[in-house]
């Protein structure tokens, strides 16, 4: 296990290193930091002096080392647009995105497990067929279209729910602004959460269904039937436990997909989170903010993936053996 741990952490560090190199290369080529600082009215000599002073004429390697050292201490540069440290800007936007992901996760977990289990134990039922049919339709509707159509029906036509923004947020712990404290805030998060959940929910229902059906075929479940254990106990205790293992890994891998879909969802609902900020930063060519986003998202992504892998290795001994050998 220890060797596997070291190997996995080494791999995570390597991926992070590649991300930082790419981010730095972007920073190096995108926009001119000097022009952002002094504008265009300064003469060529003064420019060259400043360039030398800021170390912009150093070699790629020297500049990268400086960039990496700063990045490790949390200094990711200052946003051109917000005139604030890029890290601060992102950390301010982070709660909005995390709450959106939380809302979507509640919907996904709350619905996919019961629906997936039901379709697995009653595969011939009409309701199961309806669920499976709807799930393939759900996979085929892009998340932004779900979002727009929801806005059209629930905000424009019926005027039930607000169409954009976060609404009334309440500050908790001095820093975190939450949507879950007031009715208005809650109303604002309903549609974005459903939109974000809509693309992942069918995938999870189908995954849980196929894993559960496979588990129900296994010998130990047959043995449990033969032993006369009650159906509910077999389904929800014995079978479900082994069904959830592969689901956890797939869930972990979906973090990256979730990041992409938060960008889409936040854009449609003008949700003031990290994804919306990233697209705005791209349109404004706000290089430090783009780079900071890449590094932060890359970091969150690599850490969660590594943790999920390690957890999986801990929980499931058969996989551990197979992977440690590889």
């Amino acid at each position: 296990m220890f060797a596997y741990l070291v190997k996995r952490i080494f791999q995570a560090a390597a991926v992070m290193f590649v991300i930082s190199i790419i981010s730095f290369a972007i920073q190096d080529n995108l926009g001119d930091p000097l022009r952002e600082l002094v504008g265009q009215s300064v003469s060529e000599e003064v420019r060259n002096e400043l360039r030398e002073e800021m170390g912009l004429n150093d070699s790629f390697f020297v500049q990268y080392t400086r960039f990496a050292k700063k990045a490790i201490t949390g200094d990711l540069g200052t946003s051109y647009f917000f005139k604030e440290p890029a890290l601060t800007v992102i950390l301010k936007k982070l709660p909005a995105t995390l709450e959106l992901v939380l809302g979507a996760s509640i919907i996904i977990i709350g619905l996919s497990i019961p629906l997936g289990v039901y379709t697995a134990i009653r595969p011939k039922a009409v309701l199961s067929k309806a669920i499976m049919g709807l799930s393939i339709v759900g996979i085929s509707i892009p998340v932004f279209l779900t979002a727009i159509l929801m806005i059209y029906f629930f905000a424009v036509e019926m005027r039930l729910l607000p169409s954009y923004g976060r609404g009334d947020v309440v500050e908790v712990f001095g820093y975190w602004k939450t949507n879950f404290a007031t009715w208005d805030g809650f109303k604002h998060i309903i549609m974005p959460s459903i939109a974000l959940a809509s693309i992942m929910l069918p995938l999870f229902i189908r995954l849980i269904r196929s894993e559960m059906m496979e588990t129900l075929q296994s010998d130990y479940v047959r043995y449990a039937w033969a032993k006369g254990i009650k159906a509910k106990r077999i389904w929800f205790l014995h079978a479900l436990k082994n069904t959830m293992l592969p689901v956890i890994t797939v869930g972990g891998v979906q973090i990256g997909t979730m990041v992409a879909y938060t960008i889409l969802t936040e854009t449609v609902f003008q949700w003031p989170g990290m994804g919306f900020m990233f697209l705005e930063a791209v349109n404004r060519v706000d290089t430090p903010l783009i780079v900071a986003y890449l590094i932060i998202v890359g970091f969150i992504f690599v850490v969660t993936n590594t943790l999920v892998d390690l957890l999986y290795g801990l929980v499931n001994p058969t996989v551990k053996l197979a992977r440690m050998g590889a």
């Binding site: 997909t257 879909y261 960008i263 992504f301 993936n305």
Partner: peptide
Amino acid sequence: LSFSTLMVAI
């Protein structure tokens, strides 16, 4: 494979 296509593409 662990990086989602859409994320990388964006």
